[in-house]
Design a protein around this nucleic acid. Structure first.
Length: 487
RNA sequence: GCCUUGGUAGCUCAGUGGCAGAGCGGCAGCCUUGUAAGCUGUUGGUCGCGGGUUCAAUUCCCGCCCGAGGCUCCA
């Protein structure tokens, strides 16, 4: 298909060329809003920010190791490569699918609370649609293309297309603003070059929440932007990533900075530690301000999780209009936010952080956040005589993922396997426990076993997971009935 | 696309110009198990694909395919 590849060449250009010619300047902004040149700033106590800043303009990013999360994602039977697909398109085993689904449900519930209207839009769009053509021209991203009846289509890399086309057709009053539209894109596609793909860190098919807010003017855009900053911090914290786990970058046009210094400082103060600033003399992208929250991994590589941008261009490009108070139609400011970043990347961040903790402390017991643990409580009957008793114990739980190791193995072997699965609560039951209220519980990360009743265990688990979604054990409850997907 | 590196059992990996190996797993049996690996037996392979050199190639040579990592990038 020669005509198509020629078309692609045209499409991949303008912004890329512009970016090459426009060099950005880099700074660190401290909590007082002061800008420091990178070589003047004292990075003492800001090790990760130093790594992140260095990463942003480094020449050599060579790594000779498999990133630790790749081994973990496989050994925990979460996710794996799919050799039969295009690279960067992964398979999710039952446990991984559950973890991912819970994350998707959680982020969605947070966006609902924020006021996002959830929609669903197509995965593919015509490359010949005039508006999209011009938008693609602005984005140097590589697309997957699909052909149908001689028309070339591209697979979306974000939900912008569908949401903007929908908004173009909507009748919007200034009373409806800010108007918030949301979609969890499963999937977004980007045909990144082969060598760019790394485990769950960068994929060609990924799942990403995309929330747009259409705003009347800059005043409204700023206050909405602040709300979304808080939303993103809350979402990441819920996932288990606190402020010390990521670094903030602010990227903006110089004019915007000069006119909004207090606002910018406010963002830095909300983050609570110095941030990296990238500044352009002129606007080359569609946004005037962008922040991104970046995770620095076990190999000192940085990648963006959450992000939000103030877009001053696409309202016009897509001809999205609202009727203002004065009876005239205007184009809104558009905010583009992904409050968690790609869901796969959240899993990557959690696994990489556990790997870093293991490396720092030999005795450290890695774990997933309790609400994401595929098994929360493992019951180990001492012998097959006590499987019935284990069933009875399990029956007392509600809304807790409890499973039973009924395999014909020694207790030691079954404990070891449970530990290797990072299971938070392990209970061995046998003659000593029969008829007893309190059971000896091996709590992950706690040295000695604790005596707890089922009710106490359940209460503890519920307290720690109360604002999170729940799903049942994603594989058969009896270990004997489980296939092995890895190894 | 370019560069680096790899492909041997389901998994992790060793090995050799001359009968294809280990551990784990799976299966069968024994044991009836008390807080990080119980014992015995057994089943697993077109050594990525194609060609060449050779009496003989999994091993040496050439080409190809696929994976991973690096370069442009971003969630």
């Amino acid at each position: 298909m020669k005509p198509m590849s020629e078309k692609k060449e045209e499409v991949v250009s303008e912004a890329l060329k512009a970016e090459e010619s426009l060099r950005s300047r880099w700074y660190i902004m401290d909590l007082d809003g002061k800008l420091w040149d990178l070589d003047e700033f004292d990075f003492q106590g800001h090790d990760k920010l130093r790594k992140f800043s260095g990463y942003e303009y480094a020449k050599d990013r060579t790594v000779d190791r498999t990133p630790p999360h790749v081994n973990l994602m496989r050994s925990l039977e979460l996710v794996d490569y799919e050799p039969a697909s295009d690279p960067g398109n992964f398979r999710y085993y039952p446990k991984g699918r559950m973890v991912k689904a819970l994350l998707e449900e959680y982020v969605t519930s947070m966006v609902h609370k924020y006021g996002g209207m959830e929609v669903e839009t197509p995965l593919m769009y015509s490359m010949e649609h005039p508006t999209l053509k011009s938008y693609l021209n602005r984005f140097p991203a590589r697309q997957y293309t699909v052909e149908s009846d001689d028309t070339p289509y591209f697979l979306r890399f974000a939900a912008c297309f569908g949401q903007f086309l929908m908004s173009h057709d909507a009748t919007i009053s200034y009373r409806n603003l800010p108007m918030r539209i949301y979609e969890m894109t499963r999937y977004s596609f980007r045909r990144e070059q082969r060598g760019e793909l790394t485990g769950l860190r960068r994929l060609r098919a990924f799942t990403m929440p995309d929330v747009h807010a259409f705003c009347k003017n800059l005043v409204q855009a700023r206050s909405e932007y602040m709300r979304r900053f808080k939303l993103s911090q809350d979402v990441l914290a819920g996932i288990g990533l606190e402020k010390e786990d990521y670094e903030l970058a602010l990227r903006m046009v110089e004019d915007f900075y000069n006119e909004n210094k207090e606002f910018i400082k406010g963002l830095v103060q909300k983050h609570g530690k110095p941030v990296l600033v990238e500044m352009w003399k002129e606007r080359f992208a569609y946004f005037i301000l962008k922040w991104d929250m970046n995770f620095v991994d076990a190999l000192d590589k940085a990648s963006a999780l959450a992000t939000d941008q103030i877009d001053v261009e696409n309202g016009e490009r897509y001809d999205i209009k609202y009727m203002d108070e004065d009876g005239t139609q205007k184009h809104p400011y558009i905010l583009h936010c992904s409050p968690s970043g790609a869901i796969e990347r959240d899993i990557y961040a959690i696994l990489e952080r556990e790997a870093m903790r293991m490396k720092a402390d030999n005795g450290y017991k890695p774990q997933l956040p309790l609400w994401l643990a595929p098994t929360q409580v493992r019951i180990i009957p001492v012998s097959h005589e006590y499987v019935g008793f284990a069933d009875m114990v399990r029956g007392k739980f509600s809304k807790v993922r409890v499973d039973i190791d009924n395999r014909d193995e020694t207790v030691g072997k079954k404990i070891r396997d449970a530990e290797k699965e990072w299971i938070p609560y392990i209970v061995v039951v046998g003659e000593r426990e029969a008829g007893k209220e309190k059971l000896p519980v091996r709590v992950r990360g706690v040295k000695d076993s604790q005596n707890m009743s089922v009710a106490e265990m359940q209460e503890k688990i519920h307290a720690e997971t109360e604002d999170k979604p729940y799903r049942p054990v994603p594989v058969p409850v009896y270990l004997q009935e489980r296939p092995k997907f890895v190894g």
